[in-house]
Design a protein around this nucleic acid. Structure first.
Lengths: 344, 344
DNA sequence: ATGAAAGCGCTAACAC
DNA sequence: GTGTTAGCGCTTTCAT
């Protein structure tokens, strides 16, 4: 079976013109049931797939979507990207996945590269909103609020995020209700990711509700959302002898680092310290004694992202420009209620 | 400033032919210093970026590399892909990352799609080697041995893998040396991934060395490499009252599931059961008491993959067609030596 | 050193 | 219903 590789060869094998084959491939009508069957058969027989460069050149529709993600190594992002990519592929779209490593510079380069490649649309996990080159490309911003809003969104973009403040609030309240009074928070406000800020606001809100003043010593702001950095931070806190009975972590990855630190010092969860994470990733499930964690609806996020980007590519403008997804708390052993204990 | 968008417009603005502009863009020589400057200036002025579809169509060189990965959600693959993608981007290549979800059918579709998109090369984490459509595309197979070799590799492909049997051996020996005599193995031979088989061989090899006969009851073959499936398998083993004192898991993800099961039944690691994983991922570090795990040299794998695919795209043929990377054992508390204990 | 021109594989008028 | 044909934007002979 000689593999045909161009539409012309298929046309010749089927004894029709390339136009007919094209119509059949694209389901544009104006062909008979019979011809369709014959052509489709030959296409399958030859494993023929239309050259997408030629297609893209001709139509300026590339059916490629750029996905910009800070770090695919983070389980939360990996889950989101996986789901998104599968959905889009199902609709005939391929994904160029770009890791920025949280570097603004890399992000800019990636975005320029994606534009040069004529992507049909982009899904960005990024707080940055002021890329001029994105003006007339459909864009879905997902999972991260705008870092520094320079006006509203363009007409070709929408955004989706979880209710991060609520998440921070739920996690902190959980610790408070379990009896914690000195709750350290692992966060990373210096990053490009303003979800961190929202989660921190949730923390503040819960403390305020319980009449507990903010304690500067327990505000552990880190340079990056990393397991090892979080581990070092908790180790440092312990070394300095600052008492705490709970840790609210703004990501599961940092929570994992905190667990490492506690384990190294022979402290147990939840006996000595209670803990919450954020993302409810596999890490949370598997971690130490099981980590109570804020669950984001990743599946819904992916579905919405896919639907919206496809909708925008199709020329429709979405009904809403902003979507907020609810969060919930998955309870595990790391916040098992204390009976009653002295503080400190 | 009117934005020119085609090479013709640039040519007209510069008062030269499109051929000259093209030569300048591609640094193909045969133009004067003066013309170059003038054209380059106009290109910058207009933010002109060559249409990569046209380019790809014309040259079949797209500077896009397809990466096919079973599941980006698996930390081991995520790390590999991240590293690879960053290296390639640095060299001016973009990556189409495709998740197959371990489905042969999806994999086939993805590969066809990548071929149709004229990718410059592909990096495949796949055991399947008989794709006719890959005949004359540079391909690096990485991390997975051939599932059913149909002859040797084509001239345009190379393969890289870890010494998986050695890894399985090291892990099992570790358990044996710590005093285990009834070692269950969590594996998944039915999958497309023949690393599983190699790791199992390592297990057999170690047992044999210690004169311990294979015990069918302890060979836990699963349908998929999943945390939840592994958890169920260990739960089932416990329910059936089959005694064991160690678990050798062929992936960290399965080991995590085993830990979950043990924890649910109130069993402790390493007091009651010892355990090893494979991949030395973040999971292993964070898991329960810290999981002893076989470490693959992912960085080296990524570097080698990037170097080789670029080399092949550049027309060179690599010196070796097969590369095997050494593994090592990262020891953690899950295999802390027993003093001496009764079997069963 | 530069230009003219022939396509790469496909789609979309436009004919019939 | 089907065929003919003109490009999409670019690279690359082959001229000069």
């Amino acid at each position: 079976m000689p593999k045909a590789k161009s539409i012309r060869e298929i046309a010749e094998l089927a004894g029709v013109s390339t136009a007919t084959v094209s119509r059949i491939i694209n389901k544009n009508g104006r062909f008979s049931r019979e011809t369709e069957e014959r052509v489709l058969h030959i296409i399958r027989q030859n494993d023929y797939v239309p050259n997408s460069n030629a297609r893209g050149l001709r139509t300026s529709r590339t059916r490629v979507i750029g996905i910009v993600v800070p770090d695919i190594t983070n389980p939360h992002f990996a889950n989101l990207v996986l789901d998104l990519e599968m959905r889009l592929f199902q609709q005939g779209y391929s994904c160029l996945i770009c890791n920025t490593n949280e570097s603004q510079e890399l992000e800019k380069k990636h975005i320029q590269s994606l534009v040069a490649q004529n992507v049909s649309g982009m899904v960005l996990i990024s707080g940055t909103r002021n890329y001029a080159e994105l003006e007339d490309i459909p864009v879905v911003y997902v999972d991260r609020p705008a870092h520094s809003l320079t006006g509203g969104l363009e007409s070709t973009s929408v955004m989706i995020e979880s209710d991060n403040q609520k998440g921070g609030y739920l996690a902190t309240r959980e610790l408070l209700e379990a009896g914690c009074r000195r709750i350290a928070i692992l966060k990373c406000l210096t990053s490009e990711d303003d979800n961190q800020l929202a989660r921190y606001r949730g923390y503040q809100q819960a403390l305020e509700e319980y009449g507990i003043p903010l304690n500067q010593e327990l505000l552990l702001d880190q340079k990056a959302v990393s397991t090892q950095i979080a581990r070092a931070a908790i180790l440092n806190l312990l070394d300095r002898g600052i008492p705490f009975d709970g840790i609210m972590s703004t990501t599961d990855t940092m929570a994992a680092g905190a667990m490492l630190a506690l384990r190294e010092r022979g402290l147990c969860i939840p006996e000595h310290v209670l803990m919450t994470g954020f993302d409810d990733s596999e890490l949370a499930e598997v971690c130490g004694p099981g980590l109570t964690s804020v669950r984001q609806d990743v599946e819904q996020m992916a579905k919405l992202s896919a639907d919206l980007i496809l909708q925008m590519i199709g020329g429709e403008s979405p009904k809403q420009l902003y979507y907020q997804l609810p969060v919930s708390l998955t309870r595990r052993d790391s916040t098992k209620k204390k009976v009653s204990e002295d503080e400190g």
